[in-house]
Design a protein around this nucleic acid. Sequence first.
DNA 1: TGTACATCAGTGAACGCGCGTTCACTGATGTAC
DNA 2: TGTACATCAGTGAACGCGCGTTCACTGATGTAC
Lengths: 208, 208
Amino acid sequence: MSRTESRKGAETREQLLDAAETAVLEKGFGATSIEELISAVGITKSGFFYHFPDKGELAKALLKRYIEREDKLFDDLFGRADELNEDPLHGFLVGLKMLSETMSDLPSGHPGCLVAAYCYQERLFDREVRQLNSFAVLNWRKRFRGRLDAIAARYRLRIDVDLDDMADMLSVIADGGIILAKAVEDKDILPRQILLYRDFVRTAFIGN
Amino acid sequence: MSRTESRKGAETREQLLDAAETAVLEKGFGATSIEELISAVGITKSGFFYHFPDKGELAKALLKRYIEREDKLFDDLFGRADELNEDPLHGFLVGLKMLSETMSDLPSGHPGCLVAAYCYQERLFDREVRQLNSFAVLNWRKRFRGRLDAIAARYRLRIDVDLDDMADMLSVIADGGIILAKAVEDKDILPRQILLYRDFVRTAFIGN
DNA sequence: TGTACATCAGTGAACGCGCGTTCACTGATGTAC
DNA sequence: TGTACATCAGTGAACGCGCGTTCACTGATGTAC
């Protein structure tokens, strides 16, 4: 229980972020009130302002936490896949399979991507938050582009595609898959679409 | 100027919907105020309530109009593509090319998909609006599934994919592409992703 | 070990503003006879 | 053609509520000497 990170306050802060994340993904940031967050956590409104100087800082902290978690998920998942495969293509394909299964295991489907939610509410956030969002996406591109480069060094590309586009396509499929799954309330859509992307990568590099 | 559709009122109503659509895609429905809509159109607040009984009816009218327009766009686009090709695969591929070009021609990128925006704010809408959203997506699935069936009747599928998934994938790519384009402010992303989907369909049916 | 002080994690009351909604009313245009 | 009435497309004022934010204060815990 040191001074720099005393436990109690940090716990309350996390609970506020948890409540905020759920609410923002269901109703949007503008329609999420500080009032509902504190009543979920059980503190007063001034308690909220002890943890965040204003609502904008909540938005920033929320997005930062989300991006860090997502990065960690990818690190863990594709890291494990790499341990099982020395071939970069098979490592990526196994990673995608594992990603699909992880999404499949979510009991009521993926709750939503904060990056996507923020994109549809850009005007509510300042430049810093929007840049955070942009960097996150560009970082995912870089991450998957690196894998695709390693694959392309050993396998011949059978179709004429740009590898940045192909790297982006995983983020595109994930965000789009979440939306369709939410729209028709079918949690299988996202994992199935990820497997479709996997098929695309496989045929692009080893044909059919 | 008949009684059932006098011109002046209908025009104001459309302007309100235009202002609402722009605002909702930039800030979300909850953060879009009636006040800003009427100041954009130049009427008073009571004027708004002459056109819409409450804010919820605005949401419904907005979504209905969006879905109708989108359906019409697909009808026109793939209809024209069909006239130029009697082969179903080439017709679909030409249609996708045209769709990509249409998205490319949008001067500042696609402004956003209302269906996607509503998914990230589901709690703000009643069951009727959510069902409207769901039906729209299922209808797109049906539309593209029909085309894929026609193609599969003439071409052998080279990879083992479900055609409903492949049909959904176009909506997924569109919605996800819009999000990435917004996130990194690069309007080329959406048209390029559509072309990537086109490559996938082509290789799935004629190989490489 | 005791005391003084500092920091943490909040409380409670008050604020002004903007929001969605209601209601009684109105001038311009259209329709019936 | 003139008059009476109906409908359209709004206006203007008022409402109560909830929102984000501020400010002075406080009890519990931690640290220095």
